[in-house]
Write a protein that binds this DNA or RNA. Structure first.
Length: 303
DNA sequence: GATCAGGCCGAGT
DNA sequence: ACTCGGCCTGAT
């Protein structure tokens, strides 16, 4: 295996290990890992090759590679972010299989059709604060645009980790930045939401942990008090950042699936949401991710 | 140059 | 409770 040199000095705490560590039977395929990392739930992953990716989680650079059904990883900080943290981040444990088992794919051909080509697709367990930031940036923007804007903020205000990689600055740092500065960074009308949220979070260091510990509906109500957070973004943030698997974000793609594939023509948004929660159950968010990736990959176009 | 995006919010029905 | 237009910016 080639040594991966990310340009860090030898005594840096964030130097990458030379060897790859491996996780057997991860359940991922190249397709499902790619969609998990790049399919709109996270904006910090970059594909290096067809089967390898690099991303920044907290202050850790993580590199992933899938070969021969084996998942390989390298962490820049294996003491703090090692096997256990990688497994948790990627939802590699038995609870994933249990979640898949609870989805109604056996009696739902639409869902089953989406799941088949994406075996192993996960909901990532990302840092809550970072997910909130990225999804506040997301309205009416494409994935590449969100990635680029977020990356610029990390570059300007985050920590330089080497290799052109930067950490998410955190809300404490963001709260020191003016709205007009955000507008210079092309946030557009999202600038006032990021600014307002940063001001709200200032002096509330426990807010994220508190919300995470709340039941889904309470947490949803709490998150929706933030400026720029409506139902859709609240559900994204809770699903991807707080492991609230009941969350079922309905964006335009999912709306299309519900309308066209489940024939909910003429149903209101709240009726569609009721249907989804009832039909898909407590892992509705996982079903949502299969739909999102399935629609993106065009599984419905093939008849 | 117009129009429209992976949404939110406030105003009006 | 639901519909509508405005909002920044960038891509067609």
């Amino acid at each position: 295996m080639t040594k991966v040199n990310f340009g860090l000095t030898a005594n840096s705490p964030r130097v990458l290990s030379e060897k790859w560590s491996s996780i057997q039977e991860s359940g991922f395929t190249v397709e499902s890992l790619g969609e998990t990392l790049e399919g709109g739930q996270s904006f910090i992953w970059n594909r290096l090759q067809e089967n390898s990716w690099v991303g920044v989680i907290g202050l850790t650079i993580l590199k992933l590679r899938l070969t021969d059904n084996k998942l390989l990883w390298q962490s820049s900080n294996p003491q703090e972010f090692g096997h256990e943290q990688v497994s948790e981040y990627l939802w590699i444990d038995q609870s994933y299989n249990a979640a898949i088992n609870q989805l109604p794919w056996r009696s739902d051909p639409v869902l089953h059709q989406c799941m088949k080509p994406l075996t192993g697709l996960r909901i990532l367990k990302q840092p809550f604060d970072e997910v909130l930031f990225y999804f506040l940036l997301s309205p009416v923007k494409s994935i590449p645009q969100i990635k680029e804007t977020g990356n610029q903020v990390a570059k300007e205000f985050g920590e330089n980790l080497g290799h052109g990689l930067y950490s998410f600055p955190g809300w404490e740092a963001l709260s020191e930045i003016t709205e007009s500065k955000f507008r210079e960074l092309k946030f557009g009308y999202r600038a006032k939401n990021i600014f307002g949220t940063a001001q709200f979070l200032k002096g509330r260091p426990d807010w994220f942990e508190t919300v995470k510990s709340m039941p889904y509906m309470d947490a949803r109500k709490e998150v929706m008090q933030l400026p720029g957070v409506g139902e859709k973004i609240a559900d994204c943030v809770l699903l991807f950042g707080a492991s609230k698997m009941e969350s079922f974000p309905i964006d335009t793609w999912i709306d299309k699936v519900l309308t066209n594939r489940y024939n909910l023509i003429g149903w209101s948004q709240s009726q569609k949401l009721d249907f989804a929660r009832l039909h898909f159950g407590k892992f509705a968010g996982l079903a949502q991710q299969f739909f999102f990736s399935g629609e993106r990959l065009g599984v419905f176009d093939k008849g």
